[in-house]
């Protein structure tokens, strides 16, 4: 259990859904105590990767180890026990819409512990304070802005004091201020609470500011990894295209299609019906 041992270890993972291969020989080691970013173009299965790590989806082959648990071979109750040590921030927060902000953060405590009400109140208010939303405790999720909802979800994700925190696209659709807030919280929680964080994102500049280590996914495997600086100076075409935001390159601008002129001149237009 030294500081640099991998807490999440994926080896030769294959996963396909509906005949489409998402991962083909994916290898990834996430080190304890670091903020690890997983980047890649849309549709490379970044969110699917989180679902595989948490056991919400099952890999076709390969092994996935998370904090000593073999996810691919665990029963539902073993997975639930593992998830109690993990927190996850969903893209839109995924707050329960029929209960208040306070009750949302209290939800895992009420489900898993028999703490007295006073203690629950104390824990919830301190977590809300740490994301700056103690004042919003009485609001309903529908009354929150997108950034606020995500911060409440973050408070909920850390209320059980997890070892691992997963962020699924935490910056999507946020204004620059909210984005800055979330960035700072990711770093602060990771260091103050002794977490291991995995941030799935495609916001290159935001993520390189906060990550210790970056994995770049493309075509079902890791095409590059390293510190943000190493990646910026990487000679690889895929990395250059992604970091520089170029429209065409190894990741093509065009979705695979038959020949353009032939299709325009074709008489029967029935292919799209």
């Amino acid at each position: 259990m030294n500081a640099t041992s991998p807490i999440i270890d994926l080896r030769d993972v294959r996963y396909s859904v509906g005949g489409r291969t998402i991962f083909d020989g994916l290898d990834m080691q996430v080190l304890r105590g670091q903020v690890t970013a997983v980047m890649g173009p849309s549709g490379t299965g970044k969110t699917t990767l989180l679902r595989l790590i948490t056991g919400q989806a099952t890999a076709d082959s390969g092994s996935i180890d998370v904090a000593g648990v073999a996810v691919t071979r665990s029963s539902r109750s073993q997975l639930y026990a593992m998830r109690q040590r993990m927190g996850m921030l969903f893209q839109n927060g995924a707050l329960l819409t029929d209960i208040s902000v306070f009750e949302n953060v209290a939800f895992p405590l009420r489900e898993h512990t028999r703490l007295p009400e006073r203690l629950i109140r104390h824990l919830v208010l301190t977590k809300l304070q740490s994301v700056g939303l103690r004042g919003a405790a009485g609001l309903m999720p529908a009354e929150l802005s997108g950034g606020m909802a995500r911060r409440v979800a973050l408070a909920r994700a850390i209320v059980m004091d997890p070892q691992i925190l997963l962020y699924d696209e935490p910056f999507v659709g946020l204004d620059p201020i909210s984005m800055g807030v979330i960035l700072r919280l990711i770093r602060r929680f990771n260091d103050a609470l002794g977490l291991t964080s995995i941030v799935v994102s495609h916001d290159v500049h935001e993520i390189t500011a906060v990550a210790d280590r970056v994995f770049l996914l493309s075509g079902g495997r890791v095409v590059a990894q390293g510190t943000p600086l190493e990646l910026r100076d990487s000679p690889s075409d895929v990395v250059k295209q992604f970091v520089g935001g170029l429209a065409d390159g190894p990741v093509p601008f065009h979705y695979p299609a038959p020949d353009y002129f032939e299709e325009l001149l074709a008489r029967d237009g029935g292919r799209f019906a």
Partner: peptide, 21 residues
Amino acid sequence: LMRATDQLSAMEMMAVDPVRR
């Protein structure tokens, strides 16, 4: 709608079985 807005997945992630809850 709870499924569509990830609320059921969020429960699963909090180790709460949505079937039970």
